[in-house]
Nucleic acid binder design. Sequence first.
DNA 1: GGGTCTAATTGGAATAATTCTAGACAAGGG
DNA 2: CCCTTGTCTAGAATTATTCCAATTAGACCC
Lengths: 150, 150
Amino acid sequence: MKPRATQNPASPSAEETIHGAGLRMTDQRRAVYDALMAERDHPTAVDVFTRVRETMPGISLATVYNCLETLTGCGLVKTVNLDRGPARFCPNLSEHAHFHCEQCGTVLDLPLRARRHVADAFDLPEQLAITGQEVAFRGVCPKCATKLSK
Amino acid sequence: MKPRATQNPASPSAEETIHGAGLRMTDQRRAVYDALMAERDHPTAVDVFTRVRETMPGISLATVYNCLETLTGCGLVKTVNLDRGPARFCPNLSEHAHFHCEQCGTVLDLPLRARRHVADAFDLPEQLAITGQEVAFRGVCPKCATKLSK
DNA sequence: GGGTCTAATTGGAATAATTCTAGACAAGGG
DNA sequence: CCCTTGTCTAGAATTATTCCAATTAGACCC
């Protein structure tokens, strides 16, 4: 096995993943990816744009959309759709649901419990091939619940 | 218990539900609701508009949006958001997930199995109050699976 | 290192879905 | 019958996103 220098041996680097798809890791793509990893709070495309512009003032919104699309295409980032709102982006690759707080708007990741499968809860017809799923909850988050009960 | 004349005793009529919310059952609202009940295939607002216009040619798209909003507000109809596509509408009030076929675009209802709860599959923080959920699967529907295997 | 080929970025225009607005209309209570 | 309020309508406005054509940047080969 090749040594891999100062790096998490569990999963390939973003670089490797992108190269594996025959694409390049450009400065813009890295900046967008880094912005998502730095504050994992499910920002919208415009949020990401705003953040990335701090270090890369010339980047365009179209590029941010392109990069997010590329990153989701390679499986490095997931798109989160909550109701009719703008898409949000999430670099958490482990299986999880999203929880959207109606009070403060925060989005929380809820990890899937070990050996559980969402599809088991439903009656599926024969021959149904599931390739993806999205689970979203709505409600009041712990912080807001505490605040409200005061 | 009051007798209830020629009607499903299990649930109040759409009329009653709307009145219960202090609103009126207008011709437009009924037409939109009937269109949803007649073909329960998860139409978009524009689909509904097209269908309703056949019997009510003067109706406007804005009204269809208003009616759908009102009906969802009273809980008679559910809004289904699949990826970034236009919203779809569904008068199936029993708990269910949606399945979106990547081949043909059909949307299927998948009923929740008895005594199952989607939230059980996830690690929830204390104090999290869930008031709503939406589960969407993506994949290949039975019909398309059969077609593809030929 | 220069030339070449293709991928990526950019700004602006275009699109799609939805919401807003203001005026007309209609229903029901007094 | 009048008044109030809720509803409908057409069109304008908004929002998020995608498209487009032109430039720029990488990677590869010599």
